[in-house]
Design a protein around this nucleic acid. Structure first.
Ligand SMILES: [Mn+2]
Ligand SMILES: [Mn+2]
Ligand SMILES: [Zn+2]
Ligand SMILES: [Zn+2]
Lengths: 147, 147
DNA sequence: ATGAGATCAAGAATTATTCTAAATAAGGAA
DNA sequence: TTCCTTATTTAGAATAATTCTTGATCTCAT
């Protein structure tokens, strides 16, 4: 018996582990298939197309489980609902003030994001979240908005 | 007539301007007097000690007005309520996972916080928010928590 | 003093998220 | 397989931060 025999396999990723249930598979696939940092509500809408019976509570549960396990990242940008992202590379987020798109911004190779900051002596940083706002390349190159 | 003659003066700061009413004065002083990044609720509690009749709605209004005017900054750290900060220098925020303290982390002189990031070509960054989580110097130097 | 517009206050409404409790599904042992 | 235990899903209620609504009050320029 090899590992491919079972559709339902317990995944060990990062710190946590979890069972890849049908619902979790759907939720995860939604995130993989369209990497635009959807909110839980948006994930729910997309998931329902693939599994009409899935509930919003389950979507929240799945997202939370996978975030705990380190398979997806929670993204906080601006004031609105939490967004979700399956990109596990260290990256920041860029919200376009014009079109609302949320883009991944990779950490430069070998760069240290805390280098620019005068950290208090003796502090240890476990986690860093960077949210930028501005105009994305597309919107920045377009003429001023008429509306 | 000099500027000190009038208690009620219209302030021009940053992009916006606003009237420094009694309530706004109290809310602003609360932020200046204890720079621990309180939430709106906490600002409300403290403001009530100085002006018992002030309402939560007004605290929200004042904070919003002053944030619009650029006199205070809204601080988003983790998923909880927005915090407020009268420090106008460019700085990041550090949340201690142990004691819950939120510290200011100054930008190093002449440093560029976007330098570590591979910005999409042509994007323009208007605003950057950095939230760190970890152990503050005090907590990091203490023995492991027994609770 | 007076009128227009800004601000304040109280509470209702909204919204994202979490919680609760009951039903269902899954995996292991017999 | 069948039974048992536990994890997961579901629907809806509850919570909490924030915004909205509306009428009262205040300010400032006339
Ligand atoms: Mn991302
Ligand atoms: Mn601050
Ligand atoms: Zn754009
Ligand atoms: Zn601490």
């Amino acid at each position: 018996m090899n590992h491919e025999d079972h559709q339902e396999e317990t995944l060990h990723v990062g710190s946590g582990e979890f069972r890849m249930t049908k619902q979790r598979r759907v939720v995860y696939d939604v995130l993989l298939d369209q990497r635009d940092h959807p909110t839980a509500q948006e994930v729910y809408s997309r998931a329902k197309r693939r599994m009409p019976g899935i509930s919003l509570a389950t979507v929240y549960n799945c997202l939370d489980t996978m975030a705990q396990a380190g398979v997806v990242k929670q993204v906080n940008v601006a004031r609105d609902a939490t967004r979700f992202c399956p990109n596990l590379r260290p990256h920041a987020h860029f919200l376009c003030a014009r079109c609302g798109e949320v883009l991944d911004v990779d950490l430069k190779p070998a760069a240290d994001a805390t280098l620019a900051w005068a950290m208090p002596d003796g502090a240890s940083v476990e986690h860093l979240e960077v949210a930028m706002r501005g105009l994305c390349p597309t919107c920045a190159s377009q003429p001023a908005q008429l509306v």
